[in-house]
């Protein structure tokens, strides 16, 4: 049975006093396991918020090392971390932030042949990647493991967020099946990934707390240059090769 120590009660007091969280909600957070895919601009912020909120176990994955060009937005990493694996840098900061959080650092590039092992027995996949191909890999793991996938993406002053729940909502592939994988790195101004990852983190907390009102069946678009934020409705794609009826037929034999 999960219990909270007096130190944990003190640490989480300001969120435990929120109606709807309380001790029961904090215990759900402590029991939760979240996979953070990528420790760049998005994963830096979601890593901090997942650890700070008291998510009990984080699995953090990134195959890269810290570079100078990361530091305008990837706030988990500091100047002395240049050259070390992002997982090592992240582990140091997140452990210092919350020693109650168990962290598994996975210094590996996420691929189709290792994604299931990396995600392990996580309850949620938080997207902090920087390309569409890896997101499609994460989406396939989400569908096959039947766990939510919270997508976030940024470009310049723009951001996009959506939550995908297998079997209930469209999946990432439904929306972006025909997208090409442009490999050039887009420009990014730091607050955009912070905004997007903060929304992704809130979605993860709401899922763990079993709350309604998720950002499902909708795509949230943030246009930072004139601060237009809007949602568009997304129906399920009946032709989706990942979660469509053909896939369901294959899974059911």
């Amino acid at each position: 049975m999960t219990t909270l120590t007096s130190q944990e009660r003190l640490r989480y007091d300001r969120q435990m006093i929120i109606p709807g969280i309380g001790e029961a909600g904090q215990k759900k957070l402590k029991q939760a396991k979240v996979f953070i895919a990528g420790l760049g601009g998005l994963g830096s912020v979601s890593g901090y918020y997942m650890a700070a909120a008291g998510v009990g176990h984080l699995r953090i994955a990134d195959g890269d090392c810290v570079e100078f060009a990361n530091l305008n937005r990837q706030i988990l990493h500091h100047t002395p971390d240049i050259g070390i694996p992002k997982t090592e840098s992240a582990l140091k900061k997140l452990r210092a932030l919350n020693p109650f959080c168990v962290i598994t650092a996975l210094h590996e590039t996420i691929r189709i042949d290792n994604v299931i092992g990396l995600v392990g027995d996580s309850d949620i996949i938080l997207d902090g990647t920087d390309n569409i191909a890896t997101r499609k890999v994460l989406n396939s793991a989400s569908v096959s493991l039947d766990i939510p996938f919270i997508y976030g993406g940024v470009n310049g002053f723009n951001g996009t967020v959506s939550t995908f729940i297998p079997g209930k909502t469209p999946c990432f592939e439904c929306l972006f099946h025909q997208q090409s994988d442009k490999t050039q790195s887009p420009g990014v101004i730091g607050p955009l990934p912070a905004m997007v990852a903060a929304i992704q983190s809130l979605e993860a907390i709401k899922i763990i707390l079993e709350m309604d009102g998720l950002l499902t069946n909708r795509l949230l678009l943030i246009r930072g240059v004139d601060m237009v934020i809007k949602k568009i409705d997304v129906p399920k794609n009946p032709e989706c090769p990942i979660c469509g009826p053909d896939m369901e037929k294959r899974q059911n034999g």
């Binding site: 902090g128 390309n131 993406g153 996009t160 129906p235 794609n237």
Partner: peptide, 28 residues
């Protein structure tokens, strides 16, 4: 509402409709 590419040829607009072309974001 999001329109899937398969429906671009069959989705037609009426007076007052709003259409936006959006570039999705895949950076991180």
């Amino acid at each position: 509402r999001f329109i899937y590419p398969d429906f671009y040829m069959t989705t037609r607009v009426s007076p007052g409709d709003r259409v936006e072309f959006i570039n999705p974001n895949f950076g991180g």
